[in-house]
């Protein structure tokens, strides 16, 4: 179907070879981010790797004999060939991943899928709304925005998570807040009294966040319910539907449109998404069991 979003070009070589064969990457480090979230830091075994990606894209990450799962890329596109994947321990594969040590080898296929419309947001305000681990696929977009900070107007990150202990990339956020002209507002669902920040869902930050709704691109990623409420608040604030982008999540077995698992109405999340312009999926957003 006609796609309204920036689609990365797929390298002809990558498409021609067997797309189901992974490339090998070795673990440099497994970094515990929060209680249940960690980041794999990977470098390619092949020193001539020409891997490149755009913010918002994902890889299929294979653990020897255990399985393969889609995980968004959360590293800086400017710091290749290092790749970082932040994920939560939620299933067999991610649990096995958590046990990996420096030097262990994993398989990587990708990058797959669509990307955040960073280029389109030039000369505009950008509001990034992240919920929980939804910050991970947005981090490469933040790197890009920071790398070319002068090209954009206001950049606002609204980040909601469960508790203060669940805040991802804390040091980096502090660093960015100090170094760049970046407004960061964090809120948590619940906190002990010693938390001096906001408590409340992330949508409560939207009405008063400092951006000009008539000239804003909104990039949203988080649990589906959170994204639906966020969209409502953004629209209430006056952000145009066609400038709201979401990243969707579905079961995936192949990443390239062959396995059928990631169908969401008339789109494949793996190749039409994961980043969608809201108007691509607005009609089915919030419908039960689609």
């Amino acid at each position: 179907m006609a796609s309204a979003i920036e689609q990365p070009e797929i390298a002809a070589a990558a498409a021609a070879a067997d797309p189901m064969l992974p490339a090998l990457y070795s673990i440099q480090r497994v970094r515990q981010e929060t209680d249940d979230t960690f980041t794999l830091e990977l470098v390619p075994e092949d020193s001539h790797s020409s891997f490149g990606f755009r913010p918002g894209q994902f890889n299929m990450v294979y653990i020897f004999g255990v399985g393969e799962v889609p995980i968004s890329i959360s590293s800086d596109p400017g710091s290749l060939p290092m790749l970082k994947h932040t994920t939560r321990e939620v299933g067999t594969v991610t649990r096995a991943m958590r046990q990996l040590k420096r030097g262990d080898v994993v398989g990587i296929r990708g990058p797959y899928g669509s990307c955040w419309p960073v280029a389109k947001a030039v000369e505009r305000d950008v509001v990034i709304v992240a919920g929980g681990i939804g910050l991970a696929p947005l981090r490469p977009a933040l790197y890009r925005l920071m790398a070319e900070r002068e090209k954009f107007r206001k950049i606002v990150l609204l980040y909601g998570t469960r508790t203060p202990e669940d805040i991802l990339y804390r040091q980096e956020l502090e660093h960015w807040r100090g170094k760049f002209d970046l407004e960061i507002q964090v809120t948590v669902d619940r906190a002990a009294s010693n938390w001096r920040g906001n408590v409340g869902v992330v949508t409560t930050l939207i009405p008063r966040a400092p951006f000009d709704p008539s000239n804003t691109f909104a990039l949203v990623c988080g649990p589906e319910v959170m994204m639906r409420f966020t969209v409502m608040e953004l629209e209430k604030r006056g952000v145009a539907t066609e400038r709201i982008y979401l990243s969707a999540e579905r079961n995936m077995k192949c990443g390239i449109g062959f396995c059928g698992h990631c169908q969401l109405g008339a789109v494949f999340v793996c190749k039409d998404g994961p980043v969608f312009a809201l108007n691509q999926i607005a009609a089915i957003l919030g419908k039960s069991e689609i």
């Binding site: 294979y62 020897f64 004999g65 255990v66 399985g67 393969e68 192949c254 062959f258 396995c259 698992h261």
Partner: peptide
């Protein structure tokens, strides 16, 4: 209909895997 799934397995030594 074209949908597929994948299955991963290892042999008893744990050194050989198939997809």
């Amino acid at each position: 209909c074209f949908c597929t799934t994948v299955e991963d397995s290892t042999d008893i030594t744990g050194n050989h895997a198939e997809r």
